[in-house]
Design a protein around this nucleic acid. Structure first.
Length: 376
RNA sequence: GGGGGAGUCGCAUAGCGGCAAUUGCAACAGACUGUAAAUCUGUCCUCUUCGGAGUUCAUUGGUUCGAGUCCAAUCUCCCCCA
């Protein structure tokens, strides 16, 4: 299990590579569709494989632990067997839920206690049991348990939070190294850089993580309320320190523009709920900007959603029809929007990779970024 | 023909003397970044320099300081009995 760095752009930090996993190779830069509960919402696996051509999808430790639970996942033989996805998977550790479910949790040195959003029951997540749960889920790449620090945290809080995340990382590593994979293939553990929007903390954290990874590094705690420019600066600071021969995963980001900017700064892997969630809410991403398909202006636009798309839904259905589906709250509308957006995201990173290899990434990206931000 | 009931901002509703007027739907926009999200927010009589201003509750007239609310007549619709 390793990472092959193929090309580094001469005018930026952009890279093209291949991440090797037990369930297949992943070309980078890559976007990973989010499948929190063991399913990419509203998307069948056939479409995920054949139309979208997702190389790797995510699952979530917190959500899968609560439902269906470890007993079922273990009995199924892991999440790959349970949901039938034969390509690589990555699980987030529940660190994001420390942030997003802040009203239902309490952080302690030992770990984080959650009040289940499903039935109110209490659950303690520790670095140790989060490793154990991710062994049971069996994803190819698993994440360290961290605290995703809010973007507006003050320096004092951000420092304490980062130091806690570092101590938790050491415990994750100890447990991970003391346990064996359950299903006959290796798993990779990615540690996570924190430090909020503070340069000194990001530097400290990047160094800490760089010394402790053997597989890849994640950058967390970004796109959580701080200005976009600050996020870009933090990515630069961190990627200057992280090992060049290992993949860098920017967690939870982001818009198409964010992704191109981050690739330029040396990021290799992305995930985000944006294409699926915004898709279900009627927002389509295109190379020319975004479309709010709910808007009246699309009611009589009988053009295909995207005639050039590899996804059948994009070629077969028109914008007017999709407008109708979403207006009528038909389930197919959610499916088509999700398929469209994910196909777009995967094509975007695929194009990025091609331009990195061909040597004109910066020209291509700088021209495209302003287009992507437009509203159609 | 007789008796009873009802007319409120696109539709459906609330309203029982101090109201530009409740709620739902529809409509028109916006938000969404390691998913408590097929969710949430705003606007929704007219004009506005966003402070307000002006017209409203079938129609007309009346009572009252004040009427969507009370009274009378008219118009329309629904139900029951002949």
């Amino acid at each position: 299990m390793s990472f092959t760095l193929e090309t580094t752009d001469s005018k930026s930090s952009a890279r093209a590579g291949i991440l090797h996993t037990p369930h297949g190779d992943i070309p980078t830069p890559i976007f990973m569709p989010v499948g929190t509960a063991g399913t990419v919402k509203a998307v069948h696996q056939r479409e995920l494989r054949e139309d979208i051509d997702a190389k790797i999808i995510l699952g979530n430790t917190y959500h899968l632990y609560l439902r269906p639970g470890c007993d079922i996942l273990r009995a199924a033989g892991g999440l790959h067997k349970f949901n039938g996805w034969e390509r690589p998977m990555l699980t987030d550790s529940g660190g994001f839920q420390v942030f997003s479910l802040a009203d239902n949790r309490k952080i302690k040195e030992e770990g984080c206690t959650f009040r289940s959003h499903i039935d109110g029951s209490k659950h303690l997540f520790t670095p140790e049991n989060v490793m154990d749960i991710q062994r049971v889920i069996g994803a190819d790449i698993i994440m360290a348990f961290d605290e995703c620090c809010p973007g507006d945290a003050d320096h004092r809080y951000a420092k304490q939070s980062m130091e806690l995340t570092h101590r938790w990382l050491d415990r994750c590593l100890t447990r991970f190294n003391a346990t064996e994979p359950l299903y006959g293939y290796d798993q990779m553990l990615f540690p996570i850089v924190q430090g909020c929007q503070y340069r000194d903390l990001r530097i400290e954290s990047a160094n800490y993580i760089a010394e402790r990874t053997s597989t890849g590094c994640a950058i967390g705690g970004l796109a959580v309320g701080e200005p976009t420019e600050v996020m870009y600066q933090m990515i630069e600071v961190v990627n200057d320190i992280l090992p060049k021969d290992k993949p860098r995963y920017l967690m939870g980001v982001g818009t198409p523009q964010n992704i191109l900017e981050a690739i330029m700064r040396g990021v290799d892997m992305f995930d985000c709920v944006m294409p699926t969630r915004n898709g279900r809410n009627g927002l389509l991403f295109t190379m020319n900007g975004t479309i709010n398909i709910k808007n009246k202006k699309w009611e009589d636009c009988f053009e295909p959603i995207d005639a050039e798309s590899p996804a059948e839904a994009d070629r077969v259905y028109t914008l007017a029809y999709l407008h109708h589906l979403i207006r009528a709250e038909e389930i197919l509308g959610l499916q088509v929007c999700s398929i469209h957006n994910l196909t777009f995201y995967l094509r975007l990173v695929g194009e990025a990779r091609r331009h990195i290899i061909e040597g004109d990434y910066c020209e291509w990206a700088s021209k495209l970024i302003p287009q992507l931000g437009k509203r159609l």
